[in-house]
Computed example of a mutant assay.
Amino acid sequence: MARIGNKKKQRFVKPIKVKKQSEVDHVTGEKIPKSFVFSRGKLPGPLKQLQMDLRKLMLPYTALNLKEKKRNNLKDYLNVAGPMGVTHFLMLSKTETAPYLRVARTPQGPTLTFKIQEYSLAVEIAQSQLRPRCPKDLFKNPPLIVLSGFGTGDQHLKLATIMFQNIFPAIDINTVKLSTCQRIVLLNYNKDTKLIDFRHYSIRLQPVGVTRRLRKFVQNHQVPDLRSLQDVSDFVTKAGYGSESEADDEAATVTLASDLGRVNQASTKSAVKLQEIGPRLTLQLIKVEEGLCSGGIIFNEYGGEKKQDNKSDKKKAQEVASSEDEDEDMNEDESEGQEVDDED
């Protein structure tokens, strides 16, 4: 009788499905903007941390763990940007006088160069707060964008407005889910100082007229400690930690159109709370170039506005603005997102 050899049982390994990132917003139908945040030249320790803070701010449509090498040049990043659908570059650099941030649209520009007058890292913002807030899903969706003071009519400020609007995904305000609106980026331009205040906040809603104790009880579903109370009604009527008067301010309240979590219910008033999470920047726009870190100079803070005596030069500047203006349908709110695959 022939012997039957022992065959090893082959274990079935379920293949890992790699979730492909969407290139087009399912709500607006527009191409989702994606970004690379990297350095040009050697950066000191604090600026390296600022670079990581900016990458985190640009989540989820950025390469959080993008690896940089000394031999990498701008052309290398540009070659990778095309296949990955990257639309914007944020480049940090440092000279002997000051650090700089360049924001460019790929592949043909324009490029805006900002001088960083002051900055604070996210960890420094958290250390200055009594109760820092950073939920686990805070960076799951892109931030909203709000611009203030940019409507002066100047050509370079118009380009800056369009650039910042297009760097984040658009949303449809009629169908957006409130649960996706968890962060906001505020940019305020001061025409007197010519400085831009860049702030990054988390958004939190609190029901009006409900004490902190009750909110914690509803959210956590934990049995409260009633040993120090005479009656269960004391738990309801006794004020929680902190002032509740701030939540009753009519100017800071909104009426929700849909339920948001266990506490904030539809058709009820909730107070909007903003808590800074950083980084914090004070920027000065010093130069605008037509191309990607090259080309004609549309604006130079130290050399004054480029004179548009020649009609062809003026037309060229307007073409740069109009090419960026094609995506200007963006609102100050943002849509859901997913992280770009990191590239070596």
Rank of each mutant, 00 (worst) to 15 (best):
L260M: 12
V185M: 15
I297A: 01
R55S: 05
V176A: 15
V272N: 02
S270D: 00
M330K: 14
P135T: 07
V263D: 04
K31H: 08
P44I: 08
T193H: 03
L59T: 04
E23F: 11
M91D: 00
V320D: 03
Q338E: 14
G242T: 01
P143V: 06
R215E: 12
E30I: 09
H200I: 09
V86N: 07
M163E: 07
R71M: 09
G45R: 10
E319M: 09
Y241E: 15
A126T: 04
N79C: 13
V254G: 05
A2W: 01
L159R: 11
T255D: 02
V236P: 00
G261K: 03
R215Q: 14
I298E: 05
L78D: 12
H26W: 05
N174D: 14
E124H: 12
S148Q: 14
G295E: 06
D248Q: 10
P99H: 04
K69V: 03
N79F: 08
I277C: 07
A257E: 10
M58A: 05
D259C: 03
K31Y: 02
A252E: 08
G5M: 05
T211I: 08
F150A: 10
S128Q: 07
L112R: 02
Q127I: 00
A81L: 03
L47R: 07
T95F: 03
K316P: 00
V37Y: 08
K273T: 09
V123L: 09
G151T: 10
I184C: 11
L281C: 11
R40W: 08
D333G: 10
I171K: 03
I286Q: 11
T87V: 02
G261H: 10
Q318L: 13
K191M: 05
Q51W: 00
M330I: 12
S322Y: 10
V288L: 04
E23I: 11
P279T: 08
I286M: 04
P99Y: 01
L43Q: 11
G153A: 02
V218F: 00
N72Q: 09
R102Q: 14
T87L: 06
F168P: 05
D341M: 04
P15Q: 11
K9W: 01
T255C: 14
P107G: 12
N188E: 13
G242V: 01
L138Q: 03
Q108K: 15
M330L: 06
R71N: 12
C134A: 01
K136C: 15
Y302F: 13
L157T: 06
K238S: 00
R71S: 14
E332A: 14
G82I: 09
L121N: 06
P132F: 03
A239F: 04
H156D: 10
D225S: 11
R55F: 01
V288G: 06
V146F: 07
Q129P: 09
Y61H: 15
